Amino acid sequence: MKKISMITLALSIALGFASCSDNPALETETQSVSTAPNNNTSKVAAAPWVKQFEDTFNVGATLSQWTKAQRTDYNSKYCDYNSSVPSIQTRDGKGCLEIKTTKLSATKYQSGLIKSNYQYKPENNTEYMLSANIKLIAMDGANYKSFTDTYGAWPAFWSVQENAWPVQGEIDIMEGYSFAPNVSRFTSNLFYGTASGTNQLGNTAERNYPSTFNLNGNNGWHLYESFWSMKNNVVTVTIKLDGATVSTYTNSSVSKLNLNNFGPHNIIFNLNVGSNDSNFIDPNKINLFSTVMMWVDDVTVYKRSI
């Protein structure tokens, strides 16, 4: 998510942490389901995967497993995160995390960001699977609009170690950029450096989602996954969309990347608006109608030996 060079001085600021997970007990899944492509948003959950973390955002639950940000986005002076924004709502008949935007003025939007108190990274000969079902949607008054009809929205699902960023890395599973009337863009990305505040990869690790990706398919719901493994001290990160591989990263796939120095990471969901780089997102063109929303049905982390 942190891709604009202007933010590097701010990135060393660590967010506070709230209490630990409501569900610390590990749980072994025994049912067998698959993550085949073609918009199947079921998750792999069969043994030998063991659940490490879960939040289903059921109505009536709290966000006590998360820290809610209260600050301006590092990438955009136009977006302020308010801790009151992330909430649990019923959407499409499901209990969901909802992060929604509100226009405060011609140059300022309010939105939300949450970061898990839970952290993870693979030990040698283990693999972690982080996954979330997410829907992006807009509203114009009482009428729903496609995310692809908006301009200037920047939602993301990612994991990171913010302390001394990017020395312990960042994994962007999904970053979305709305550019209507032009086509919206979705990518994965990695960030890494050997000194605090200095990303030595630039955007050389950015990988576009397939051009065939239909955001509005499957009623807008899609499964976004990160598989992070270490096998005989060789680290691999694989990003999947609805069960199909988007990108695979190893140390040899990106110059100056060292995945062995990554972690431990927290999980982040946020919905940014605009950019400090007006050539990237023109602030004069921002159009979110009444609001843009990110709905997250669930998020899980599983672990297995490999």
Rank of each mutant, 00 (worst) to 15 (best):
R91C: 04
T35M: 15
E54I: 12
T300R: 12
N163C: 03
E170A: 04
K285E: 10
L113Y: 02
P122L: 03
P264C: 04
A244T: 08
F157V: 04
K256V: 01
Q110T: 11
N233T: 13
A47K: 13
Q89D: 13
Y120M: 14
E98D: 06
T198G: 01
Q70D: 14
N218S: 11
L257S: 02
N23I: 00
K43P: 00
A132Y: 06
I88T: 06
N75P: 01
I267L: 10
P283Y: 11
C20D: 14
K3E: 06
V237A: 11
T150R: 03
G193H: 06
S184H: 13
T204W: 07
A69I: 05
D22N: 15
N117D: 07
S76Q: 05
K285N: 14
V237S: 00
T150I: 05
S32Q: 11
E170N: 06
E206P: 00
T212Y: 09
W154K: 12
S290P: 08
M129Y: 14
T62W: 06
G93P: 09
Y74N: 11
T238W: 03
D297H: 11
S116N: 05
K256M: 06
C96A: 13
D277Q: 05
T250L: 08
T291S: 15
Y192P: 00
W228Q: 05
P166S: 09
Y177V: 13
